[in-house]
Amino acid sequence: MIAYSEVSAFTDTPGQGNRAGVVLGAQELTEAEMQALAAFLEAPETVFVTRMGGGRVRVRYFTPTQEIEFCGHATVALGLTLAQRGHWTQGDLMLETLVGRIPLSLDTEAGVPTRVWMEQRGLETRPAAREVRRELAEALGVDERMIHRGLPLAAASTGLWSVFVPLLDPLILDGLEPDLHRIHLLSDALGVVSVYAYAPMGVNRFAARNFAPAVGIPEDPVTGSAAGALLALLAREGRLPVRGDRACGVVYQGHAIGSPGEVEVEVTLAGQTVTGIRVGGCATLDREGHWTPGR
């Protein structure tokens, strides 16, 4: 029997934020068994620890339908689970993933772990062709005039590619009626995992919704890796206030589907070049259980 945890990430309220499966003892599981357990849990993503020791943890991530290279909210869920179980007590932790090594750090209060921060990979971007703007708007169920002209519309990645679509305000965002089949086709055509719609709520606060039918997730409640890419993209384009060499912001996601969560992001800059991206969040345990392979 394989022990698993279900953890809500980017929230301190069970059942909100984004649910992740966490399996610490996956050393002997085959790829097919990991996929079967991820499908059984039906969480947007499940993270499997395949090796642990010496300040390093090797992991793999699965959606209910396929393996993916990286997942931000599952990483936060894993970090808090490791800390709460006593596997991570001090110093940084190095996560080994299919996109490379991801350093993790931990915030504590009175010795109690409260928040995990993950260093994301460098920002990569691709421009979106002008004609794609209309197609994206129609796929999201809005008129092209609802797209914000002063914020970047582009594909970006710090590990997973998304196309970021700015909308004029959060009310438009809440009212989206996405055509998931069309979004799937557009995602494939653009070479991205998801279509990530966002809208400004303040100078460094944004609301967001993320649609990823291409990897079996109609709407992801809260997406840490994409929030990091978004804030880095905005900082590089001069759309965030910068103090010294840092720009900070918060992304609110999941409210439209009843699972609100918050992602904190810190971006380090050298001029207009992004030199570092940190994504932070809290997490809380929902429930635990056991699964038997082959059943």
Rank of each mutant, 00 (worst) to 15 (best):
M1G: 14
A3Q: 07
N18V: 03
R19V: 09
L24G: 02
G25V: 11
A26T: 00
A32N: 03
Q35H: 02
F40H: 04
F40K: 05
L41F: 01
E45W: 02
E45D: 15
E45Y: 08
T46E: 00
M52E: 01
G54V: 04
V57Y: 05
R58V: 12
Y61T: 06
F62R: 01
F62H: 06
T65H: 13
T65S: 10
E67Y: 04
E67K: 00
E67C: 04
E69N: 14
F70T: 04
F70P: 00
C71S: 01
G72A: 05
T81F: 15
R85N: 11
T89A: 14
T89S: 15
G91M: 13
G91I: 05
E96Y: 04
T97V: 13
L98D: 08
V99Y: 09
I102D: 01
I102A: 04
I102K: 00
V112A: 14
V116T: 04
Q120E: 15
Q120K: 15
L123A: 06
T125R: 10
P127I: 02
P127R: 04
R130A: 14
R133H: 06
R134H: 07
L136R: 13
A137V: 03
A137R: 14
L140N: 11
G141N: 02
G141I: 01
M146K: 14
R149C: 10
G150C: 10
G150I: 08
A154H: 10
A156S: 07
T158F: 01
S162R: 04
S162P: 00
I172K: 15
L173K: 10
L173I: 12
L176A: 07
H181D: 15
H181S: 11
H181C: 11
S187D: 07
V195W: 03
V195Y: 06
M201A: 12
G202N: 12
N204E: 12
A208H: 10
N210P: 01
F211T: 11
F211I: 09
A212G: 13
A212W: 13
V215H: 10
I217A: 08
I217F: 11
G224N: 09
S225H: 08
L230A: 01
L230M: 03
L234R: 00
L234T: 10
A235D: 06
E237H: 04
E237T: 01
R239L: 04
R239E: 11
P241A: 10
G244M: 12
G244S: 08
A247W: 05
Y252C: 11
Q253L: 03
G254L: 10
H255D: 13
A256M: 07
E262I: 08
E264I: 05
V267K: 00
L269V: 04
A270M: 03
G271L: 00
G271D: 07
Q272N: 09
G276N: 04
I277F: 09
I277V: 09
R278N: 14
G280W: 01
E288Y: 08
G294A: 03
